[in-house]
Each structure stands twice: as C-alpha cells, then as structure tokens.
C-alpha cells in the first residue's frame, strides 16, 4: 500500500524514456504535470473532461486521455508524449505522413491524433480504412482535417509494412 497526499509528494515518472522527478498533489492530472511541471506542452488541454482527445498520450503503450489520468497513478509506467516520437530530430513516419497528407490545419488536436494513430498501428499495423476510422474516433478535430488524417494513417501503415 502506497499513500500519497493530500499535499504535494515527490514522484518519479518515466517520460519519453527519461526519468522525471516532480512534486505533485495527487489531484494533479498527468496532463497538467506534463504541461506545467515538465514544460511538455505538446499534449493539449482542450476540454479537460475526456470529450476531445487532444490530451492523448501513451501510458505503457496504451492511448489514454491524460486529462482523466492522475500523475500519481503513473509512477513506474512509461509515458510517451508527442515530444518523444521524433528520433534525433527526424520525424516519426507517422508525423511525416501527417505533414505529407496535410492531416492538420491549426494543429492543436494533432499531437493527440498522432499518438492515437501510433497506438492504433501498434495494435493493428495494416488497418483498413474502416479500422482507421474506428481507431481514431476518440480524437475530435474542429478544423476538420479528418480526411487527411485517414490518408496519413493509412499511408504510414503502408510505409512501415506488415510487422511480424
């Protein structure tokens, strides 16, 4: 049994492969911890209520809404944010596909979209269009970049090819 709070307590998070040490109240969401305490502002706060998907990050590879996740729950788990996808300054193939297919306009929903797509392809490397639509259904886009998003995910899937 591990007890935290109600005041700030020290926790260690593994974010994009690096350990991060933060002092947080248990009530602090993972999203606010990433954005405010760690300066990782890629994940966006749009609704704060699980209604949009802009705050999507991966926790142990699973796509979740970080606005409905507490930071304290994530001790010992591997968190991937959008900042963690590019390697040595080279965009991840999914990110490249989003640029190539103009799968964004204002870009505010985009980090969440890319991570949702990442989780989708990890589970289903060769999705059909219907599977892409179903898998991306948890990420709204007010600018209406949806057609580009579908194309980007399908093309990224094709590029990476079937995985073993």
């Amino acid at each position: 049994m591990i007890e935290h709070g109600p005041h700030k307590t020290a926790i260690t998070l593994e974010v994009n492969g690096l350990p991060q040490f933060v002092d947080v109240e248990p009530r602090r969401t993972l999203l606010d911890t990433l954005r405010i305490d760690l300066g990782l502002t890629g994940a966006k706060l749009v609704c704060n209520m699980g209604n949009c998907g802009a705050c999507t990050v991966l926790v142990d590879g699973v796509a979740v809404y970080s606005c409905l996740t507490l930071a304290v729950e994530c001790e010992g788990k591997a968190i991937t944010t959008i900042e963690g996808l590019a390697q040595d300054g080279v965009l991840h193939p999914l990110q490249q596909a989003f640029v190539q297919h103009d799968a964004l306009q204002c870009g505010f929903c985009t980090p969440g979209q890319v991570l949702a797509a990442h989780a989708l392809l990890a589970r289903n490397p060769q999705p059909t269009e219907a599977e892409v639509v179903a898998g991306m259904a948890g990420n709204l886009c007010r600018c209406g970049a949806y057609r580009g998003i579908i194309e980007a995910v399908l093309s990224a899937a094709q590029q990476t090819g079937p995985q073993q």
């Binding site: 049994m1 591990i2 007890e3 935290h4 709070g5 109600p6 005041h7 109240e25 248990p26 009530r27 507490l70 304290v72 729950e73």
Partner: peptide
C-alpha cells in the same frame, strides 16, 4: 477538484 489522499493497493483484499 478538492485535494485528496491517494492510496495504491496491490490486491482486492487490501481495499
């Protein structure tokens, strides 16, 4: 959101 104490449990019996 009000502050609260957060307790991790390892199995259902502890709950």
């Amino acid at each position: 959101m009000q502050p609260f104490i957060h307790i991790d449990v390892a199995n259902s019996e502890e709950v």
